[in-house]
């Protein structure tokens, strides 16, 4: 489980994140939906522990100690790979730095190869890989140590249709296996198809967290794009549907 509690972060005079709160539960896919500059990447970097929040707290499985990184796998917007290493070597190196024993790494990589269908590229050096192939290796790198929680920053950016579909399938598999998956995106279609819970971010703030269906009900919209525009436009939301919850300084009454 990943929890963000009143996170804030500034870079000089730029207030990248002013107030972000949400909770992403295990066995669910949670989407961070926001326009460009909404603070998604900064939020993910704070969740990942690479940026220190100016205010607020991050909890992974109820703990705020970032030394327990084995439980957290991060795919940030820095999607570089060691080009002189093969896909397998990239995965082994990363998992080794997570402190995973070698035999466990081998097992995880074997299952990652099957899940991601990367038999043809597993022993090839990653130099010259397409965006889709790189994404497979990056995901494989995360699966090589099987973290309970996954944080993905715009994971489908640059992927073609087939690669995106395969990627979504992998995320659903992870969700079914009980993993907590959080991903950021600005693609409305992706949120509709993939997420169990949506956090709408705008101007460094989290405005609302709910399911897609409930957001439609509460905004009176029939598409995610309309609902998103409705919410970030400051329009009032209908009351919370029973069984769901809201967060932060939301715009509902």
């Amino acid at each position: 489980m990943i929890e963000a509690i009143s996170l804030a972060k500034s870079f000089g005079t730029v207030h990248a994140v002013t107030d972000v709160s949400f909770a992403a539960e295990d066995g669910r896919i949670t989407a961070l939906l926001g326009d460009n500059g909404a603070g998604k990447t900064t939020t993910i970097r704070m969740l990942a522990g690479i940026l220190r929040p100016a205010r607020g707290e991050v909890r992974i499985d109820g703990q705020s100690d970032f030394r327990q990184r084995k439980n957290l796998g991060i795919l940030s917007d820095a999607k570089g790979l060691y080009e002189r290493l093969s896909s397998r070597e990239n995965m082994v190196y990363y998992a080794s730095l997570m402190g995973i024993p070698k035999d466990e790494i081998d097992r995880n990589i074997t299952s990652a190869i099957q899940l991601l269908e990367m038999e043809d590229i597993i022993d090839r050096r990653t130099k010259g890989f397409s965006t889709g192939q790189k994404m497979k290796v990056l995901l494989g790198r995360l699966l090589s140590f099987r973290p309970k929680n996954l944080l993905l920053d715009e994971p489908t950016a640059g992927l073609d249709v087939m690669a995106t579909r395969r990627f979504r399938s992998v995320l659903r598999n992870l969700k079914d296996a009980g993993h907590c998956v959080v991903f950021s995106t600005h693609v409305m279609q992706e949120v509709e198809q993939l997420s169990d819970s949506v956090i709408i971010m705008h101007d460094g703030r989290s405005l609302v967290q709910d399911t897609v269906a409930n957001l439609y009900l509460r905004t009176g919209c029939t598409a995610m794009e309309e609902a998103f525009v409705h919410i970030i436009g400051g329009n009032p939301l209908l009351p919370i549907v029973k069984g769901t919850r809201d967060i932060g300084e939301s715009h509902h009454d």
Binding site: I50, R69, I74, S76, A78, G80, L81, L97, G99
Partner: peptide
């Protein structure tokens, strides 16, 4: 070089 190729940041997400 590692920073420019964006490999350094991902290493900082590890337990090392």
């Amino acid at each position: 070089g590692e920073r420019e190729r964006q490999t350094l940041e991902s290493m900082f997400y590890t337990a090392a």
